[in-house]
Amino acid sequence: MAQDKLEHRLKAKAAELGFVACGIAHAGAAPRAGERLRQWLADGRHGDMIWMEERKHHRESPAGLWPEVRSVIALGMSYAPKDDPLRLADEGGVGRISVYAQGPDYHDVVKRQLKALGRWLAAEAGRDLPPFDLKVFVDTAPVMEKPLAEAAGLGWQGKHTNLVSREHGSWLFLGAIYTTLDLEPDEGGINTCGSCDACQTACPTDAFPRPYQLDARRCISYLTIEHAGPIPHEFRAVIGNRIYGCDDCLAVCPWNKFAAAANANLAFHPRAELVAPELADILALDDASFRQVFAGSPIKRIGRDRMIRNTLIAAGNSGDRALVTSVAVLLDDPAPVVRDAAIWALAQLDPARFREEQIRRAAGEIDPAIIAAWRQADTMVA
């Protein structure tokens, strides 16, 4: 088989495996990505994501992770939602889970198909080409998948810093195959955001200091997923009923009008119980039941305590006094981050009950952080 035909056959096989986008870039095709990463880290905008800094030398370029790499095959799977992700914004009694996390863990689905494509490539090209090697990556590895996807022509990094595709909007899961093969590269993506600032103005926490830059420390996805401690008070009210992630900047992208949900991978169809879960049901979960409910979901990785913290913030914003009992029970939770959120939520929902609990517990509390949480919440109900 002639090598100049391999790229076409590769893309056909990728489509067969469920990838709606496939492109090729030279390993060095995104030279500015490392520079932008270093500046982002220097500005501290990665927050608690210490691993970003610890492995920046691997992430700066494909060769930093694997010196032998010659080509990068960038791939995308669509998870375009059937329904408007913002439709539950005013439904205080339910939690909003980011579209990507309502189904099975995309890391597992994408990586499985990347491996299948890698096996095909090894067998297909191995008959006619000298020995070569390849490695597959999803976003758990130190790979700059978005700049590489742009370099490979899958789309462009929009002003919200995520990849935007003309055909699939902002709804693509990305993966990459690094290989020592010299493959013919595709033309890079062309930015067509123009003067549109929909994603910027949609952000509830002003997480974009300027277009194409994200301050993760202000991002609701970061705060509800990556951040381990108490959520800063300045963001609690605007989080609303988002209990895992945030779709706002993605959902308002005008290019989504071309992203047909019918083309989304069937493997990512949402689980009914994760589309609009009742806050009371989530608040009742202990560690064992949390693991059971979120088995096979990316949500499982954040652990029960963060999820309860997030749900308590949503409860405090709900105005639903029927949640007071569920919130008050969590004042005795073993996890300080849960107790902190429960104090705040109770102060929002029932100031009188808050005062009762504050007086009753004042003498027995020894954790300085929780004592401070009571005092800070007290200022809200004075």
Rank of each mutant, 00 (worst) to 15 (best):
A259I: 07
C196D: 14
P211Q: 10
P232I: 08
W255V: 00
H227V: 05
C196I: 11
V238R: 15
A251G: 06
Q213E: 15
Y212L: 03
P211F: 07
C196V: 09
C199A: 09
P204V: 11
A198Q: 10
C253R: 01
R242N: 14
A260R: 14
A261E: 13
Y244D: 00
P230G: 09
D206Y: 12
E234K: 13
K257I: 13
Y212I: 03
P232L: 13
R236D: 01
C249W: 02
I225H: 00
A228E: 15
A237P: 07
I239G: 00
T224A: 08
K257Y: 10
I239C: 01
P254V: 04
P254R: 06
R217L: 06
P204L: 14
L250A: 11
T201C: 10
P230T: 07
I243Q: 03
A264M: 09
I239S: 00
A207Y: 05
A216F: 07
W255S: 04
I239F: 04
A264L: 08
S221M: 10
A259D: 04
I243P: 01
N241Q: 13
D206A: 14
T205F: 04
P230N: 05
A202H: 04
S221K: 06
A216K: 01
C199S: 10
Y212P: 02
T205D: 05
A237G: 12
T201L: 13
D247W: 09
G240E: 02
F208R: 02
S195Q: 09
C253T: 06
L250V: 04
C249T: 02
A198I: 05
A198F: 06
Y222C: 03
P230R: 08
C246D: 15
W255E: 03
I231V: 15
P204N: 12
W255I: 00
C196F: 08
A259T: 05
F235N: 10
A264I: 04
A198H: 06
F235S: 12
T201N: 13
T201P: 03
Y222D: 02
S221L: 08
L250P: 00
C196E: 07
V238P: 01
C246H: 06
F235R: 11
P209H: 11
I239E: 00
I243V: 15
I220Q: 01
F258Q: 14
W255M: 03
D215V: 02
I231N: 00
T201M: 12
N241W: 02
N263P: 00
Q213G: 00
D206K: 13
R236I: 06
A207T: 10
D206C: 09
C246R: 03
D248G: 06
C246L: 10
C253K: 03
D206Q: 15
P209M: 13
A251C: 08
F235E: 09
A198E: 10
G245A: 12
A198P: 01
D197M: 15
A259V: 08
L214R: 02
F208G: 01
Q213C: 09
L250C: 07
T201F: 12
A216V: 09
A261Y: 14
F208M: 08
C219D: 09
F258D: 12
Y222I: 06
T224P: 11
Q213F: 05
T224V: 10
I243C: 05
T205K: 03
A207F: 07
P232M: 12
V252C: 11
E226G: 01
N241Y: 02
H227Q: 15
A264V: 05
C196Q: 08
C203G: 06
N263F: 08
C246S: 13
L223Y: 01
L250R: 09
